[in-house]
Design a protein around this nucleic acid. Sequence first.
DNA 1: AGGCAGGTTCTTA
DNA 2: TAAGAACCTGCC
Length: 273
Amino acid sequence: MLKIKTKCFDIEQIADSGQCFRLVKSTANSWQLIAFSKVLNIYAREDNTYDFDCSQDDFNHVWSNYFDLNIDYESIIKSIPGDDEYLCQCSRVGNGIRILKQDPWEALISFIISQRKSIPAIRGCIEKLSAKCGEPLGSDINGNPLFAFPTAQAIASLSMEELNACGLGYRTKYIKRTASEVYNDDKLLTNMFNLNNEELSKALCEFYGVGTKVANCVMLFAYHRLDAFPVDVWIKRILDTHYNGVFPYIGKIKNVGVLQQYMFYEAQINKKN
DNA sequence: AGGCAGGTTCTTA
DNA sequence: TAAGAACCTGCC
């Protein structure tokens, strides 16, 4: 177990922020994450401390990076204009959120699946897909088998019928074609790290089934473009309510993608209550 | 029961 | 920066 204590890091907030779909609460104070073909169990302890059930090596090379622990989120929060009471409130409520650095392939497929689906439905699809053709990763504490997110080759090899059995609906054809393209050019997604934001957005939108919103999610949650600003129905509602339809800080202050997460999370919390 | 869900594509004007 | 319909399926 590795003891982790960091400012601006709250695993429950991250799990509820909707940016990833395979970080789930397993008990009252523990979470299970599957990413990069690894299973990580995280335990919340007293005093904002977490125990990561992993080696020091995995922490240094995988999870520290995944959870973006090397960026100073306090300074991002401080950059919020003080007279914007609503946004300051959101940043207080969600100050433990980090923008994850997810695998671009997994994020691309996950957010194609996400269109017009509720979060539980998205999770269900991804779990079915992983169980169907992902690499086995042992089992959880209840004996349920766990699977890595499938490779592009694995998904590209599935028939339309097999894909459809995962509840993908009309997205099946999007997934099929995108998986084939990524499988046929195994450096495609990696090379896209070299593109600037505009080029990256354009390149992502060329995938079948990827539009502006999905592209922005992949940019923010996998390519770590903190200025990407995904606008979904929730954010649109928020912008209409608080900002007359347009987020006024785009192009004005940095890291608007982080602010987007604070606003989205705050809305999720209000929904629960 | 039936609308709606973290959109995108396709058609039509 | 053109609107509007169609789209699969499961959740609420």
